[in-house]
């Protein structure tokens, strides 16, 4: 279900999801041309989570992310030009080329540096939440992380501290392996590598509010995040949400299977023969296509409007690629700057 928002707001949320999708596809293209430096992680299949959560946030809220941060940055409103330039290691990037793909950063959007260590960001988000509470600000900290983060000790310590001191944190655990059989030790895929079957149980026994949310359902994400934020502001402490999505079939590096999303799959049920083994993805598990279908069904958008929106977003991303490519690498003297604040 779409969130309880106006048509314009729903279309804007959908536009952001498409923007993320096209951005990530552009990253994959660029990586094939050796323009992306270092290993990278895309957000394809999880767009409804970042956009849904970000839709309920205030400018003063903090947003924290991990190695899979591109989507969070864009959902928060980051400039795709500068975000892509950073991934390309260019001087015009958000961090002047010093950080790159694993460390998305947009401080002007209250989006401090992302951590490349899977659970490394959870204690930090707990700390920004503590500062918000201490300063009596009506804001929350949101932290996005993968199910893999729950394998690391830092996650447990952060959850305990947030629960113990009723800190205004929304922990958003993005489990992008919903199709994996839920049993101790998981299945053949490396995550979840957990003895605990339901990740929310961990937070629940700490006395935290918890929720399991379908990551294909932006309305459910939106509602859960809105409620969590309201509770946090009321002083009722942290919430742990597990948002479940399905593994993007193209995401298993280095085999990229599906290539570019054809937005016409929204209304055209034909799945190309070469992708027939991924039929479920096209029919059910792609959140961008799911939301587009909802917009059509609810009469919020027509086919032509969706195609037009996609064309606009694609054009913006093509511009971002051009901007990033035409941007210079930083001069070597920059390597020695910003070690200390003064």
């Amino acid at each position: 279900m779409l969130p309880v928002m106006s048509r314009d707001q729903c279309l804007e949320a959908f536009r952001k999801m498409l923007l993320i999708r096209r951005f990530e596809e552009a990253c994959i293209d660029a990586a094939a041309k050796q323009q992306v430096h270092g290993h990278y992680h895309v957000y394809i299949g999880q767009e409804a989570t970042g956009v849904g959560v970000m839709s309920v946030l205030d400018k003063g809220d903090f947003v924290h992310s991990t190695h899979r941060n591109h989507g969070h940055l864009l959902a928060r409103g980051a400039d795709p030009d500068r975000a892509l330039a950073e991934i390309f290691g260019r001087a015009t990037g958000y961090s002047g080329g010093k950080a790159g793909t694993l460390h998305g950063c947009a401080p002007d959007l209250n989006f401090p540096l992302s951590s490349g260590i899977v659970a490394g960001i959870l204690p930090i988000s707990t700390g920004t939440a503590y500062a918000l509470k201490y300063r009596k600000l009506p804001n929350v900290s949101v932290v996005f992380f993968g199910d893999g983060a729950m394998e690391e000790g830092a996650a447990y310590e952060a959850l305990n501290l947030a629960a113990l001191w009723k800190l205004p944190v929304i922990f958003v655990c993005e489990n992008n392996t919903a199709e994996v059989e839920r049993k101790p030790g998981g299945a053949q895929y490396h995550a979840p590598n957990m003895s605990i079957v339901e990740l929310t149980d961990i937070a629940r026994i700490m006395g935290m509010n918890t929720g399991i949310v379908d990551g294909l359902d932006m309305g459910a994400v939106w509602t859960a995040a809105r409620d969590a934020r309201e509770r946090a502001i009321r002083g009722e402490g942290a919430t742990f949400l597990e948002v479940r999505t399905h593994t993007w079939p193209g995401g298993q590096y280095p085999t990229l299977v599906t290539g570019r999303t054809d937005i016409r799959h929204t209304w055209n049920g034909e799945v190309p023969a070469e992708f027939s083994k991924h039929e479920k993805w096209f029919r059910r598990n792609d959140p961008v296509l799911s939301i587009a279908r909802e917009l059509l069904t609810l009469g919020m958008a027509k086919q032509a409007e969706i195609e037009k929106l996609d064309a606009e977003v694609t054009r913006a991303i093509n511009e971002a690629v051009k901007f990033a490519n035409e941007s210079p690498f930083p001069p070597v003297e920059e390597a020695l700057t910003h070690v200390w604040p003064h």
Partner: peptide, 13 residues
């Protein structure tokens, strides 16, 4: 290696 966190951008590194 100079006493700075390792930068991503290839020319700097």
């Amino acid at each position: 290696f100079a006493a700075v966190p390792v930068p991503l951008s290839p020319p700097l590194e």
